[in-house]
Design a protein around this nucleic acid. Structure first.
Lengths: 338, 338
DNA sequence: TTGTAAGCGTTATCAG
DNA sequence: CTGATAACGCTTACAA
């Protein structure tokens, strides 16, 4: 079923059908009706490949996510959901590319061959080959996250540095003097994962400003790692009474480790962090945390991308958000342990 | 940059470049080298739309997921991950469509207009409009899940009926006499969500076979709902000592509710269910559960789809899996409560 | 071993 | 207000 068939049956030319569909040229009510009738009867929809070939755009955006094999965090999932939602609202389709490694077929397929009009890139590293590749290709893209020198790209990001510093100040205000930063996995941080590094800077800065003692550790993205990480922290740092973290997936394990060490939260120990609201609220006790507005960030990223696709000459936009810390049940006044 | 430009610079015809690329006709080593050199230099990749238009296939599959706004469960996420992975291995791209409602633009866009070669459909209802639509369109598709009368479609599915029955038998063997089934949300079940209904049948059957007392409740997909659901169950059914569930997201809340009622797991109360292994293992105590092999199911679904795309006349395949129940720490001998 | 040319289904330009 | 026709970039008979 193609446009020619519709035209034939409606007794008009192909161009008239096309114009009736797109409205880019006036078509008399009468013919419009006749054409629509045939279309409805046969269930015709224009061939997307032909249209893309002719128009030079696909009405599709690429979404590059971390390799699917390693589980997505709740926050990452929130980004994916909001991007997909926002794209759907703008009548755009989303082509998924699970890629993170260096030489990646899926990524190459999606970004070359005019398969998409633009790309949203998640989980960006401080130095990121994919960013360089996209810039080289001249394909419009927007980062959820940013590189070390992000001036020449559009991005939206969470201000981990500020937020972790705020967590430290909040804990210091509560009287905590010895704090730990629980980061994400060592591999991720070693690979130059931006949030990991920026959280460290924020932590170091705030620790210094308040004259506290601080220790930084990495931890894999799951509850079991959180538990063993916490056990180790407790034995190695007897004076520790509080944790700041960006590792939402590990928090329930940390709670468990504390419980098994006979420490209550927030009575004996406090934890504050950066997390998806849904996740923070579902922990027990609910986590005092800066709630990452994944919905807003994803939607904004799509907006920026649409803009760049429409006019690649448009200036780069940057959106750095530092949501307020929601006080919940996981932080309280310090009570010395030793 | 197009194939004509490559041909011109390599001093050959467009067809030769095409054949050098696809290997569908012998090309002399010498010209092949020369062509490749030009391609490498200019970074040429064939235009996907043009190729799709000519070949009549897009090398892309659609993946229809539940509306992104409502959070995906860990198991659903596992399916998405494995489908995306398997597709990537087969050099297929994945177009995402978040749709569940009745009249859905995103779904229509993806399944019409020759945008994809086939579709994988998740979260299928007993009566599902989308299945009917796909059959009407004649677009190859494979379900992860199945309708009430699933003979005339290909699908892979988890045998919830058998698995929940097995859970009941396991709990009965441990001496439990009064059991509850915690289903997924009431809306989902009311909408004809297959696993919900099939779990009920399995539960009823096993309860009858063993002469037990059983009660069935629905529960939203989150920890807080799990907790309040459990509190209600405990007050309304004082003799209850065990739960079978397919609601993995609610389990941690049920644990919490039990703990706050002063009941230990598995000392005072047992829970068994169907869940993603990762999820079951990360609970505390780890959940005795049939571990849904999402990886295998997703990969098989992609395989089946590839087959159907290659030859639409191929017979429909059905794969119903009932993995063994992994005994973990959440079930133990019954100890009467009242 | 290579080249020529038709055609996939659209949209847009140019005529009428 | 409408029709013919030329692209868009590719693959693939058919010829040489």
């Amino acid at each position: 079923m193609n446009i020619g068939e519709i035209a034939r049956r409606a007794g008009v030319s192909r161009s008239t059908v096309s114009y009736a569909l797109t409205g880019k040229r006036p078509v008399s009510e009468e013919t419009k009706r006749r054409i629509q009738a045939v279309i409805d009867e046969l269930g015709y929809r224009p061939n997307a490949s032909a249209r893309a070939l002719k128009e030079g755009r696909t009405r599709t955006i690429g979404l590059v996510i971390p390799p699917a094999s390693q589980r997505l965090t709740d926050m990452q999932l929130g980004f994916v959901a909001s991007v997909v939602d926002a794209a759907a609202r703008a009548d755009l389709d989303v082509l998924l590319s699970p890629s993170g490694g260096e030489h990646d077929r899926s990524f190459e397929r999606v970004v070359t061959g005019r398969r998409v009009d633009g790309v949203i890139l998640m989980e960006i590293r401080l130095e990121d080959d994919r960013v360089a590749r996209l810039q080289q290709l001249g394909l419009p893209f927007v980062g959820i996250g940013r590189t070390r020198h992000p001036e020449d790209m559009s991005w939206v990001d969470v201000d981990y540095e500020t937020l972790i510093a705020k967590c430290v100040h909040h804990l210091a205000d509560l009287g905590h003097r010895q704090l730990a930063l629980v980061n994400r996995s060592a591999e991720l941080v070693a690979a130059g994962y931006g949030p990991g590094h920026r959280a460290q800077s924020g932590f170091d800065r705030a620790i210094a400003e308040r004259g506290l003692r601080g220790v930084r550790v990495c931890c894999a993205d799951d509850a079991q790692a959180g538990q063993s990480c916490l056990e180790q922290l407790l034995t190695e740092h007897p004076g520790l009474t509080a944790i700041a973290t960006i590792n939402e997936a590990a928090v329930s394990g940390m709670y468990r480790g504390l419980a098994e060490a006979g420490l209550s939260v927030p009575g004996d120990f406090s934890i504050a962090g950066v997390a998806a609201r849904h996740w923070a609220e579902n922990l027990h006790p609910p986590l005092t945390a800066a709630d990452v507005p994944a919905d807003e960030l994803g939607a904004r990223a799509v907006e920026l991308l649409i803009q760049r696709v429409a006019d690649p000459g448009t200036p780069q936009h940057h959106l750095l958000v530092a949501p307020p810390i929601s006080l919940r049940g996981s932080t309280g006044p310090a009570r010395p342990r030793d």
